[in-house]
Nucleic acid binder design. Sequence first.
DNA 1: TCTTGACCTTCCAGTAACTGGAGGCCTTAT
DNA 2: ATAAGGCCTCCAGTTACTGGAAGGTCAAGA
Lengths: 132, 132
Amino acid sequence: MNISDVASSTGLPVKTIRYYEDIGLIAPARSANGYRQFSDSDLHKLAFIGRARSLGFGIDACRDLLRLYNDQKRASADVKKLAKSHLGEIDRKIAELGQMRATLSHLIDACAGNDRPDCPILADLAADHDHA
Amino acid sequence: MNISDVASSTGLPVKTIRYYEDIGLIAPARSANGYRQFSDSDLHKLAFIGRARSLGFGIDACRDLLRLYNDQKRASADVKKLAKSHLGEIDRKIAELGQMRATLSHLIDACAGNDRPDCPILADLAADHDHA
DNA sequence: TCTTGACCTTCCAGTAACTGGAGGCCTTAT
DNA sequence: ATAAGGCCTCCAGTTACTGGAAGGTCAAGA
């Protein structure tokens, strides 16, 4: 299988697949002309990584997940721990964004949005929020 | 005012303040020895930027907000438009993270988390989610 | 056979917004 | 005089790609 076939069957961009080889996530064989030749195993790995990335796991976490996946003697506790830690990160981000959302949405509601210069949004940004 | 004073009163790291000068957000004066000399206006600008950043606005949006802030003839509609667009971005991110959270949390609940290798999390990652 | 177009390759640079560190001058206090 | 600490610049690294240039390869049609 050539790279563009792999791209269309995994949904990953060609560039991304090359990048994943670069950083050592996969190591596809090469044919005589220098083209990458992807095995089913490469394909599965890439699909696995793509799925993990879509759940927000970082590249290093993907590496760990792949290692655990290939380890027949793994303990599911290790996987769960990794996933829980990632869930914590997600929750932290959601909380942060939720906080931003609340403040911003409040300010937007307070803003007339007309051709006058008075603006509660700018007023808030300029106000003293005290970091001292 | 020297840079570390500004850092402690704005809550921004010294490195970040230098960076903001680098990219043209501020242009503090220099004293004879080459040290940056921050005016009250510089200080206010930095506080403004810091606040905008804490609401998740990107650097370019900060530049726009600062420009609007300094424009006495601005229309609040322009500020509101910018803020609304940013709110949309935030909502998009929250939705994406919420989706991840839901899936991941479901998988975590299904995982025994013991010393056995069976793991619904890995099973899901390895499963065919069909991008073809 | 030649050419054209779609592949494939590598390498370099850029993205967002900093952050860390090296090497070195300036200031202040002992 | 010296040591500590603040300031300076410049370079490199971070995350996870993405775009583009320059060039080799392959299959099909005229």
